Amino acid sequence: MTLFITHPACHEHHTPPDHPERPDRLRAIEQVLEHEKFTYLQREQCLRAELEIVALCHPWEYIERIRRAVPQIGLVQLDDDTVLSAGSFEASLHAAGGAIHAVDEVMSGKAKNAFVAIRPAGHHAEAATAMGFCIFNNAAIAVRHAQQRYGAERVAIVDFDAHHGNGSQQIFWSDRTVMYCSTHEMPLFPGTGAMSERGEYDNVVNAPLRAGDWGETFREALDIAILPRLQKFAPDLIVISAGFDAHRLDPLANLNLSEADFGWATRKIMEIADLRSAGKVISVLEGGYALQSLARSVAAHVTALMES
């Protein structure tokens, strides 16, 4: 069974007019998943994350700093890209809560895999720094929760967002129990993700792509650089940082992937999950800013999850 997790609170994280990271992204996803072919997709709303679980990745001082910065009205800029509105703290806690809920359902065997449609996204959020539209690192929080609550000995993150997940890499840089794998455009924000960045225990695998690359190059990067390392690592759980801004129509990157490429990548990850982690996969939404291509890419991704 594939589980779809979201929460209305994630619509209440507001951004300036014309900001690419906007509530309409979730509406587009929710609408496409109403199609009859997703009739058997199980749907649940998540609770807000307990702060103690968020604190597995983020210092208490940082969590409190974000909470205090939330305005009663209007917007507060944390940096050039990242803002807080009145609903942002609750949205961020529900975003992390969605990832936590997915871990609970998958690790307990109630669902085989899960897709978590939440915002704000998380993979740019470092331990004590919000950036790149991200407040709390949802994927990283999911990893730590799986380890603490369910005793997962090894967890892998596979990140195919067009932008490198510097936050996830930073949080797990010195952790031999977590492998972080990423395809991404380079050079591009945030400027990290070179192949030479390998982690303290050779636990980071970066496979950068160049502007203009098509799906064939993306698939080759996964096949050659990432999937063999993922299989060798033999994780107990795979967390996908599912960004869809590498699509050829997305305005924030310069890659040329299609919906079929995201479906293919999902199936390849699921093949390894079936061999190494009893099929246990959770997928957490990251980027994707052209609404139609985002919706179609999510549909391809969720279809692949449901087929496993």
Score class of each variant (00 low, 15 high):
residue 22 R to Y: 11
residue 46 C to M: 02
residue 75 L to N: 12
residue 56 L to Q: 05
residue 51 L to A: 13
residue 49 A to W: 02
residue 6 T to F: 04
residue 56 L to G: 03
residue 63 I to V: 13
residue 18 D to W: 15
residue 12 E to A: 10
residue 47 L to G: 11
residue 21 E to L: 09
residue 17 P to S: 09
residue 66 I to G: 00
residue 20 P to H: 01
residue 71 P to C: 04
residue 64 E to L: 05
residue 54 V to L: 08
residue 23 P to V: 00
residue 8 P to W: 02
residue 42 Q to S: 10
residue 64 E to R: 01
residue 14 H to V: 00
residue 46 C to K: 01
residue 23 P to Y: 08
residue 21 E to P: 04
residue 10 C to R: 03
residue 75 L to S: 04
residue 72 Q to R: 09
residue 29 I to L: 07
residue 24 D to Q: 15
residue 22 R to P: 07
residue 46 C to Q: 02
residue 58 H to M: 01
residue 48 R to V: 07
residue 12 E to W: 06
residue 14 H to G: 02
residue 17 P to D: 10
residue 53 I to G: 01
residue 24 D to V: 02
residue 33 L to W: 13
residue 49 A to S: 09
residue 75 L to F: 08
residue 70 V to E: 12
residue 46 C to I: 10
residue 25 R to L: 13
residue 5 I to V: 15
residue 47 L to P: 05
residue 39 T to Y: 10
residue 53 I to Q: 07
residue 74 G to E: 15
residue 53 I to S: 05
residue 29 I to H: 09
residue 6 T to M: 01
residue 35 H to R: 14
residue 61 E to A: 14
residue 6 T to D: 00
residue 60 W to M: 10
residue 70 V to T: 09
residue 24 D to A: 15
residue 17 P to G: 07
residue 25 R to K: 10
residue 29 I to D: 11
residue 24 D to R: 14
residue 18 D to S: 07
residue 13 H to F: 04
residue 12 E to P: 00
residue 55 A to T: 00
residue 31 Q to I: 08
residue 33 L to H: 12
residue 60 W to Q: 10
residue 54 V to K: 03
residue 23 P to L: 03
residue 24 D to F: 09
residue 38 F to Q: 00
residue 55 A to W: 00
residue 64 E to H: 04
residue 40 Y to P: 15
residue 54 V to C: 02
residue 26 L to Y: 01
residue 30 E to W: 07
residue 73 I to Q: 14
residue 65 R to L: 11
residue 41 L to N: 11
residue 7 H to I: 08
residue 19 H to F: 12
residue 47 L to I: 09
residue 53 I to N: 04
residue 57 C to L: 04
residue 52 E to F: 10
residue 19 H to I: 08
residue 72 Q to P: 09
residue 36 E to D: 15
residue 75 L to R: 05
residue 73 I to K: 13
residue 34 E to M: 02
